[in-house]
């Protein structure tokens, strides 16, 4: 190891970000090279000084409560004025009023379609698509037991071109739901399953922000399917699920 290489690794070494092999190499080099040894000691001293001596700025007393009060005020539901759109247009033009933006976003997320699309997008973005990864329905189904207070029907439709990818727990409209993930070529499909308000409810499909959302209730369970696939293909999976 050259000094230049060693120097580059001292920082990551201090920060516990080096792999074992590099640690061994670096420590070997430092033991032989007084210049790099001094470099290491200085950076270590800087680290210790920073950690032990730099002032900590704690929040002033009451600050936390003040912040939380502001948040709760934002979150409080407010009555809808008669000419809401007019008022919103005016205020949004002002664009400075935090409370109103929050009201708008709360109203938006209250639309179940948006919530479902949001839940779908969240699952794709957060690197949190599945808690249990398995194409085997006999692995996924028991995984949900004890996590949900209802039985989750899980079927793999690989033979029909919709292999099961896995499942996870999610929230839709503030309620815990089981999310089943299926794949069709490069498309992912989230199927959210939760207890239904009515035992049965006919199928309704709508399009929202480029995603198709299909919802229905059967056997006391509410199903919501969301995907960016074209409608005819999405409908195939809906039909398969409804035939379980």
């Amino acid at each position: 190891m050259t000094c230049a290489e060693g120097n580059r690794l001292i920082g990551p070494w201090l920060d516990d970000e080096l792999d074992v092999r590099s640690v061994v190499e670096l420590e070997g080099h430092i033991a032989r090279c007084p210049t790099c040894g001094r470099e290491k000691n200085e950076l270590l001293a800087l680290q210790e000084t920073a950690r032990e001596r730099l002032p900590r700025f704690d929040p002033p007393p009451g600050f936390e409560e003040r912040l939380l009060r502001a948040v709760r005020k934002t979150a409080a539901p407010r009555p809808r004025p008669a000419h809401r759109w007019l008022r919103e247009a005016g205020l949004m033009a002002a664009a400075a009023c935090l409370a109103v933006t929050a009201t708008v976003s709360l109203q938006r997320s209250a639309d179940p379609r948006d919530e479902i699309v949001d839940a779908h997008l969240r699952s794709l973005q957060a690197g949190h698509l599945t808690d249990v990864v398995s194409s085997d329905q006999h692995t996924v189904k028991p995984w949900f037991q004890g996590k949900m207070d209802f039985g989750v029907p899980v079927s793999d439709f690989a033979a029909e071109g919709f292999p099961l990818v896995g499942g996870r727990l999610d929230m839709v409209a503030g309620r815990p739901v089981a999310a089943l993930v299926y794949r069709r070529r490069q498309h992912l499909i989230n199927v959210f399953v939760g207890p239904a308000a009515n035992r049965d409810q006919p199928l309704r499909s709508v399009s929202s922000r480029g995603y198709q959302v299909s919802s229905w209730a059967q056997g006391g369970l509410q199903y919501r399917l969301v995907t960016d696939m074209a409608a005819p293909e999405a409908d195939q999976l809906v039909a398969l699920l409804r035939a379980i």
Binding site: F57, D58, P59, F63, L68, V71, L106, M171
Partner: peptide
Amino acid sequence: MPASTSLSDFEQALRTHLAAAHHLARW
């Protein structure tokens, strides 16, 4: 409406990380 659930989750996250957030803001 998830407002109350999310509010309490949010409050918890905020209480946990407020000291770090405040410290960073001061710097």
